[in-house]
Computed example of a mutant assay.
Amino acid sequence: MARYMSGRSVNLAHTFLDDETALTPATVTVTVTRNGATTATATGPATAAGTVYTFSAGMLPEGVYSVRWDGGATAVDLATVEVIGGPLFTIAELRASDDELTAQRFGTADVKRAREVVESEFQRITGRSFVPRTAFLSVAELPAPGELLPTSDVRSVTVVGGLEAGSVVPVERVGQFAYTPEIPADATGVEVAYGFPSVPDGIHRVGMLYARWLLMAERSAIPDRATSFQPADGGTYTLSTPGRGGAETGLPDVDAVLKGYRPDIVNSVGVA
Rank of each mutant, 00 (worst) to 15 (best):
I183S: 14
A185H: 13
A185P: 04
A185W: 09
D186H: 09
D186C: 08
T188I: 02
T188F: 00
T188K: 05
T188C: 01
G189L: 01
G189S: 07
V190T: 03
E191R: 15
E191Y: 11
E191P: 04
E191V: 09
V192Q: 06
Y194I: 05
F196L: 12
P197K: 07
P197W: 09
S198L: 09
V199F: 13
V199C: 09
D201R: 05
I203Q: 02
H204E: 05
V206Y: 01
V206S: 06
V206C: 04
L209G: 05
L209H: 03
Y210G: 02
Y210M: 10
A211Q: 00
A211S: 01
R212Q: 08
R212C: 02
W213N: 12
W213G: 03
W213D: 07
L214N: 08
L215Q: 00
L215N: 07
M216W: 03
A217E: 13
A221V: 08
A221Q: 15
I222Y: 08
D224Q: 05
D224I: 06
S228K: 13
P231R: 12
P231Y: 08
A232S: 03
Y237E: 09
Y237M: 13
Y237N: 07
Y237H: 08
T238L: 10
L239K: 06
S240Q: 15
S240G: 06
S240A: 15
T241F: 00
P242Y: 05
G246I: 11
E248I: 02
T249K: 02
T249N: 06
T249W: 07
T249M: 09
G250F: 05
L251N: 00
L251D: 05
L251E: 11
V254S: 10
V254Y: 10
V254N: 03
A256E: 15
A256G: 00
A256H: 09
V257N: 00
L258I: 12
K259R: 12
K259A: 11
K259P: 00
G260T: 03
G260D: 02
G260N: 04
Y261N: 10
R262F: 00
R262A: 04
R262T: 09
R262K: 12
D264N: 15
I265S: 10
I265K: 11
I265E: 15
